[in-house]
């Protein structure tokens, strides 16, 4: 059984590694936009392959553990959670890649407006990912609920960004191609926060054996 504990620990570390790669991808993709650094954007795109590869590795390891160790109870919930979390992380990686793609396109034209809400959204989304993984590793049961609440803030910022861009587009059709791209970026970040929310919800399942997905959260427990 000591071997199994070691395998679970190694699995946890791999998920954390994937998490940190994804966090970096979010951070760098938005930085490549704000600092108009297309080389950095290309690096984010190039590194997405590594995220995908690690996602596959983790899935295979989870399948192997289920087959060979027949995990039960909290071990089973940990492994199934790891499998689902990595899918969300991989999708976040893809979205960061999309942000980088839009950044490259936007960097080729003059800057439409200073980026204020976008970095704010990225910061919150990145924190949500980090905290949800922290809760996953440490088995925190309260923190996921806090994380899920922060998703509303990102949603609000997304609406705000969109309305602002709409204003630009109405005023001057020349801004449309840039404004549309920025609106995409905003939407990508909003989706990232949604995936972080999924992770937090899965952590609650892992800790308590209770599925709260697709339900309204009432209070704190």
């Amino acid at each position: 059984m000591a071997i199994f504990d070691e395998e679970l620990r190694a699995l946890k570390e791999r998920v954390l590694k994937l998490g940190s790669m994804v966090e970096t991808a979010i951070h760098d993709s938005v930085r490549s936009l704000v600092e108009r650094d297309s080389d950095l954007a290309r690096e984010v795109i190039r590194k997405d392959h590594q995220i995908n590869a690690l996602d596959v590795e983790i899935d295979e390891e989870c399948t192997r553990l289920i087959a060979l160790r027949q995990p039960k109870a909290r071990d089973l919930r940990f492994i199934t959670t790891a499998m689902k979390i990595t899918t969300d992380l991989e999708r976040i990686g893809d979205l960061a890649e999309n942000v980088a793609e839009r950044a490259i396109e936007l960097n080729e034209e003059s800057q439409l407006k200073p980026y204020i809400d976008i970095p704010r959204m990225a910061e919150i989304a990145q924190e949500m990912v980090r905290d949800s993984l922290d809760a996953f590793v440490k088995g925190y049961t309260k923190m996921p609920y806090e994380i899920i609440k922060r998703d509303d803030e990102v949603d609000k910022l997304n609406v705000q960004v969109f309305n602002e861009l709409l204003f630009y587009m109405i005023q001057d059709p020349n801004t449309i191609s840039r404004a549309a791209r920025i609106s995409y970026v905003s939407k990508y970040l909003e989706r990232i926060a949604d995936h972080a929310t999924n992770i937090a919800e899965m952590v609650i399942y892992m800790c308590k054996g209770k599925m709260i997905r697709h339900t309204e959260i009432q209070g704190n427990e």
Partner: peptide, 17 residues
């Protein structure tokens, strides 16, 4: 019992710890 046992002893027994 096998996915979400309520008792700690049960959990320890079925997870082999």
């Amino acid at each position: 019992i096998f996915v979400n046992p309520q008792n700690k002893l049960t959990e320890e027994y079925i997870t082999g710890r």
